[in-house]
Design a protein around this nucleic acid. Structure first.
Length: 545
RNA sequence: GCCCCUAUGGUCAAGCGGUUAAGACGUCGCCCUCUCACGGCGGAAUCAAGGGUUCGAUUCCCUUUAGGGGUACCA
């Protein structure tokens, strides 16, 4: 068969591949520098798994002095969603995972010399390489009726299995003669371009996966589709062409790609390109209703969308550190040893990524987040909280910003100490946590409380309260008052013979706390009183008395 | 069905032929304490099962089981 003729027949207008090869010369980078990329499909949101990959990519590029770029894989027209590219880019930026190169949202121009970074804008490039493969006799047109989605394929495969007992991997159209092809073309039949696989499934090839290590996989033998009949390449071909031309050195992708690796490798080989290194990452899972592990799913799990964490008000760094902890489990040890360093200083290693699919753990996330927040200053907390509230709780934002000093004072309670409180894990919790500070007391937690004693204590305390007291005199005063009312001021004495007392000083404090906050538990009441101020305190006492 | 991946406490996991099997979260108890947190101390809890290989297996091999993924003109 005259493949040159065929190639011209199929792609009469395609440029020679050398045009592109010259346009996109090899990157000049220092030794060891890795070029990584995130290549999401713009389908409406950025998956938590994307953030996870992006982190690996970004850290690897930074560590080696390389480049991390963003490419949009919009080759499936059925699933495209408006603005999805923007969403993806903005999410990366907001998590401090901005790409160094590539697509930057619909507003900003792309950066880098290897664009376009949107696949649908690269059709000419794919055509050239498709034509090249035809010329080399490594690809052929297939005129079979195209299938529409998974059901069709399953049906066809099932039928094939029943008829022949096995699934034919080589496509019958690879045997079409030039005349037959010409005829079909002339009658206007659409064609898909398929790889004429030269692989032998009984042979294996050795590969090295950065995460899985050395492996042997079967050679590909499937005549996979290189160009769909609509002229757009599917993932496999676009991947090989783009990552070669763009100079990607490490492809980080989910483990779900691992089974198709041999096919991808064959495409690289056919193209005459050296394949990149691969890192197939574990997939983040969760436990479903039936107790089974399963992949985080966009439809069922809100946490599959990274925007969820922002909406809930988890600090971005906390989310990143949680992910990092999943990636390299020694991160935690490093973190405790280096409590003030940025996670960016952590010696991240792709090889240390485990191969188990981790379960997403909100409790752990909350813990990391609480630790992170506890180390922030009141100013920082205020800033981040206000930023969050401004978008997600406007009413609270108003309250918060109406009196900045007061808000900051509230947020500073038990904060500026060697052992700061760790009780806030996300911004959406704060309003409820401190509602008695911002909104007054709606209702009192009175179950199990002796109201007579409560009133008695509050009345007595009103008499002796002095807003000028420092903490020690403040407490001394409470003790004194407690004592005259018949409460124990010494815990041990109280424990030994509780019958001699009305209660102990802890109970007295509980009454005061109740009057001040409406709650039985709260941060330090001395600080709370200070922040509330003398007038407000009097008011609150009056309410209870 | 076929192919691939994975398997250490409830969760995340160190480990890479000989260990009292780290650590973190959670959980439980105690201490500290004006409550709650924080902090400190301590406890309970793990090598999926069965075969090999070996002087010796959590570690290497096989089988089973379980879970995940793939088997698309989706990525």
């Amino acid at each position: 068969m005259d493949t040159k003729l065929l190639a011209n027949l199929l792609y009469p207008n395609a440029k020679d591949v050398n045009y592109w090869l010259e346009k996109y010369p090899k990157r000049e980078l220092k030794r060891g520098a890795e070029v990584t990329r995130l290549a999401p499909s713009p389908t409406g949101y950025l998956h938590t798994g994307h953030a996870y990959s992006a982190l690996i990519n970004k850290l690897t590029a930074r560590k080696t002095g390389g480049i991390f770029y963003l490419r949009l894989e919009d080759t499936d027209q059925k699933r495209l969603i408006d603005n999805a590219g923007d969403i993806a880019y903005n999410m990366l930026v907001s998590y401090d995972l901005s790409p160094d190169e590539g697509y930057r949202g619909d507003e900003l121009p792309q950066v880098g010399n290897y664009g376009d970074y949107i696949q649908s804008k690269r059709l000419g490039i794919y055509q050239s390489f498709a034509k090249y493969l035809v010329e080399k006799g490594k690809a052929f047109p297939c005129f079979c009726k195209k299938t529409e989605g998974l059901e069709d394929v399953e049906e066809r495969r099932q039928k094939q299995l029943e008829e022949t007992g096995e699934i034919e991997e080589h496509d019958p159209c690879r045997n079409l003669t030039l005349d037959e092809i010409k005829e079909k073309l002339a009658s206007g039949e659409e064609f898909a371009l398929k790889l004429k696989s030269a692989g032998d499934p009984n042979k294996t090839i050795k590969i090295v996966d950065l995460i899985k290590g050395e492996r042997e996989i079967r050679e590909n033998a499937k005549d996979i589709v290189l160009m769909k009949s609509n002229g757009i390449p599917p993932y496999a071909f676009a991947h090989a062409v783009d990552d070669s031309l763009m100079g990607t050195t490490i492809v980080v992708r989910g483990e779900e790609w691992y089974p198709s690796l041999s096919a991808h490798l064959e495409v690289f080989k056919a193209l005459g390109f050296k394949p990149p290194k691969y890192a197939h990452t574990p997939v983040i899972c969760k436990l479903d209703e039936n107790g089974n592990k399963r992949k985080l799913s966009k439809r069922k799990d809100p946490e599959a969308d990274v925007r969820y964490f922002i909406e809930e008000g988890y600090p971005k760094i906390a989310v990143i550190e949680y992910l990092l902890n999943l990636l390299n489990s020694d991160f935690e040890i490093w973190r405790t040893n280096n409590p003030t360093l940025s996670y960016k200083e952590f010696p991240f290693s792709i090889e240390k990524i485990g191969s188990n699919n981790p379960m997403f753990d909100f409790v752990k996330l909350a813990d990391i987040s609480k630790n992170y927040i506890s180390h922030l200053s009141a100013d920082e907390v205020y800033r981040m909280l206000a930023e969050w509230a401004n978008r997600y709780d406007v009413e609270f934002f108003k309250t918060l910003t109406e009196n900045q000093d007061f808000s900051k004072a509230v947020l500073n309670i038990d904060r500026d100490t060697p052992k700061p409180r760790k009780d806030i894990s996300k911004w959406s919790e704060v309003k409820h946590y401190y509602d008695y500070m911002f909104y007054g007391i709606k209702n009192y937690e009175l179950d199990g409380i002796d109201k007579k004693k409560l009133k008695e204590v509050v009345r007595a305390y009103m008499e002796v309260y002095n807003a000028e007291d420092d903490k020690e005199t403040w407490f001394a005063r409470i003790k004194e008052m407690a004592s005259t009312l018949g409460y124990a001021t010494d815990n041990k004495a109280y424990k030994q013979s509780p019958e001699n007392y009305k209660g102990n000083v802890a109970d007295v404090c509980t009454y005061i706390r109740l009057a001040l906050t409406g709650r039985k538990n709260s941060p330090d009441i001395y600080s709370i009183a200070k922040v509330l101020g003398a007038r407000e305190i009097q008011r609150r006492f009056e309410n209870v008395k």
